[in-house]
Amino acid sequence: MSGGASVALEAVTKRYGTETVVAGVSLAIPAGEFFTLLGPSGSGKTTTLSMLAGFVIPDEGRVVMGGQDMTQVPPRGRGLGMVFQNYAIFPHLNVAENVAFPLTVKGAPKAEIQARVAEALAMVKLTGFEARYARQLSGGQQQRVALARAIVAHPRIVLMDEPLGALDKNLRFHMQVEIKEIQQRLGMTAIYVTHDQEEALTMSDRIAIMDGGRIAQMGPPREVYEKPDSRFVAAFLGEANLLDVTRDGALVRGPGGGAIEAGAGQGTTLFVRPEKVTVSAAAPSGGPNQLPGQVLHASFLGNVVRYAVDVGQGATVLADAVNGPGAVLHAPGAPVTLHWRAEDSRLLAA
């Protein structure tokens, strides 16, 4: 196995006309990492990936791979494996020929091509489909062909642009596992684009969340999920409670005037995930991070009950209670007290 290579973008900018699509993006991805670009549609993910691939030349900044400046090198000189947003399977070639393509254009010997194609197809569990054409394959199978083709030449870096975008939920989950497994087995550096936050959290070593051509935050999944630096990141990654708080000197006060203590941050928006909030029928005990309120409604999700609690001043807090042994259900209208630990919450800029 060839292993991976490091990848870096240094203050890369791309403009189309007057619109800046990617604005001064810098990233450093160590060899072998599974790195994900996550962000809403139009945030510049594909453009960033295209600059890594060489389809798009940045207006400013550098693209570095394995320590070498690749900014001006055309795609064919970069030796990348690629899975495209729509698979891009050649309709005039069968599965084996499609997978063999990166080797054929390199002029690899026939025997080697055969062996590698067989290996790649085995890895994506498509052995026996060699002679089929794209139009004779299901979406999931086409996706595997694209994956096999991306890895067949054992590239040190593989780029994947929403490879699972067109698949249904079950298949997606299944493929996520397979992709991750193959990436780890081959030790490749993977740069993965998605706008599905759950997918990003499951698969990645690190995630960069993009917003309007910039990286809003970058870090391991747990860090970006639990310690967002901005309202945008907090809200984009799953459900988040974002409560307006007021500052009274050194003291921070919540909607009902109760004292708030947060793990970190300086702003006037309090962030806390619903699953970090406990709901109890007892009256507030007087400690910090206790909010009295009234249950607006309770959604029964099976393993979890999601409460929407009115905490006064028009603010609503979501709280997820695990439907564990002896769990009590609070009916709508019931008075409750919400509570969370200081280290599970942050103060964000408004």
Binding site: F55, A88, K106
Partner: peptide, 23 residues
């Protein structure tokens, strides 16, 4: 012809001549 196929071929290491002849 889907332009993305041509780009894909290029990305997989094909020279412009190869893209033309093979795709």
């Amino acid at each position: 012809v889907d332009q993305r196929l041509l780009q894909a071929a290029e990305g997989m290491g094909a020279s412009p001549a190869t893209v033309f002849l093979k795709v």
